[in-house]
Design a protein around this nucleic acid. Structure first.
Length: 432
DNA sequence: TCTGGGGTCCTAGGACCC
DNA sequence: TCTGGGGTCCTAGGACCC
């Protein structure tokens, strides 16, 4: 028997079309225990809109995805605590939770910043529920982050169990559905749109054929499904039936890597776009080196604000192939600037730009090139030195002049909490 | 007035070759 | 030169996920 355990903390969010919330509120509370029980909201990059609310803030009627300025009066009147998204802090707390979870399984898959799968194959089936409670209790005690646990034979069922564990008072954060007589009942309770692998498009199509619950989907006709939907949905259905199609995977190598941002203000000027693209490239390259990878292709994209339909619209992208796979920041910045010059058109108010590093390969497996103009061994030493300095003194302590000195395009983050766990100077701001 | 950022997989279709 | 059939590779786009 395979036992899959799905753990979720912080809660998840979804795309703009069906916003759920990201409960980063619990991260903020770890260092400000006085905030427990108080209303909290977390803002998106640029402090534009609300991407997370604590239960107390929800109760006040603050909506998910609501523009900050619209909720401002209510927020002030009710003394709601406001935070800019602090992804550095959330990422670090996430790593601590993952390390704690690793104590409970020989095989841990870090699925996202706030989710993990634990392989419990071979564990005592009768005691899985108790084991789930032990995980929840221990990790919460060690990290201060609340979590919920779902257990079942397949990953899809484990996710579904977790979904119910959070909602059900009786489950109290832990639900084991392995060989459970409540299985049918559980599947009937979950809307098909809430099944992992069923998005909005599929849900609409399924609903129109009378398939509304996870149970309906589990019972659906195979021939019809195969004919109507792409292959991955059939895997989902099999998983709902208890047939494992997805294995627990440990740290699969990334295939691509993206860094992109919306600007605080629209940007028309090529030089400033070049600065932002250089900075995104530098950031992406740093992550690339950290992953031990190099890229064969680099893509740059720019776009105007698609919500402002009255303004002229333009979006484009292009990629540059690199003869030798690279992780060298200056080489990548050069390529990025070359790509940007190709797609830049004057007279548009750009709202967003981004850099994608594609066709990644492990750095130690990079094919050399006889006519390579770069001394890569030397460059590599330079990159390591830069990364070390930035790690010790904070992100951006040392950077390329091409990134600009006082970047106007930097994000607005007026309400960011300190990076308590990753920056000594900010730790001093701890306030209880 | 505001509307994030970072990923994967599958499929269709065009280019090119034999 | 014309023809059909079939293969591979690449790209773009759309679905999904967090």
């Amino acid at each position: 028997m395979t036992g899959n355990c799905h753990v979720r903390f912080l809660e998840g969010w979804e795309t703009a079309t069906s916003p759920r919330l990201l409960d980063y509120a619990s991260c903020e509370r770890v260092f400000r225990p006085a905030l427990v029980g108080k209303p909290i909201v977390v803002l998106s990059n640029n402090d534009g809109c609300i991407i997370a609310r604590s239960n107390e803030a929800k109760a006040l009627g603050i909506r998910m995805g609501e523009p900050f300025y619209k909720a401002k009066a209510l927020i002030q009147a009710q003394q709601v605590q406001v935070f800019s998204a602090n992804f550095t802090l959330y990422g670090d707390l996430s790593a601590r939770v993952m390390n704690s979870l690793a104590e409970f399984t020989p095989e841990l898959e870090i699925y996202s910043v706030d989710e993990a799968f634990l392989n419990l194959t071979g564990f005592d089936r009768a005691n899985l529920n108790a084991y789930g409670r032990q995980i929840k209790r221990s990790v919460e005690q060690w990290t201060g982050i609340p979590l919920s646990v779902g257990i079942a034979e397949t990953k899809t069922l484990a996710k579904l169990a977790n979904h119910l564990a959070k909602k059900s008072k009786k489950a109290n954060g832990v639900l084991d559905l392995t060989h459970s007589k409540y299985r049918k009942d559980a599947l009937q309770q979950v809307k098909v749109a809430d099944v992992w692998g069923v998005g909005r498009q599929y849900a609409e199509k399924l609903n129109s054929k009378g398939i509304h619950s996870a149970f309906d989907l589990q019972q659906a006709d195979d021939a019809w499904l195969m004919h109507t939907f792409p292959v991955p949905l059939m895997r989902t259905v099999q998983e709902l039936r208890g047939v494992a199609c997805l294995s627990i995977e440990q740290a699969p190598l990334p295939k691509s890597l993206v860094c992109s941002r919306s600007f605080a203000q629209p940007e028309e000027n090529l030089d400033r776009l070049k600065e932002s693209v250089a900075a995104y490239t530098a950031h992406a390259a740093e992550r690339l080196r950290k992953a031990g990878m190099a890229c064969h292709r680099l893509l740059v994209f720019v776009q105007t604000n698609r919500f402002r339909q009255s303004a002229p619209q333009y979006a484009n992208s292009t990629s540059i192939a690199l003869i030798t796979a690279s992780q060298d920041t200056s080489e990548l910045i050069q390529a990025a600037h070359q790509a940007l010059r190709h797609i830049y058109k004057e007279g548009y108010a750009y709202q967003k730009a981004g850099v994608m590093l594609l066709d990644l390969v492990p750095f130690n497996a990079v094919q050399g090139n006889l006519f390579d103009p770069l001394d890569r061994a030397k460059r590599s030493v330079l990159m390591s030195a830069m990364d070390q300095i930035n790690q010790d003194f904070g992100m951006g302590a040392i950077r390329y002049a091409a990134e600009g000195l006082r970047p106007r395009w930097r994000m607005k983050q007026e309400h960011r909490s300190p990076r308590y766990t990753t920056c000594w100077s900010e730790l001093a701001q701890v306030n209880t």
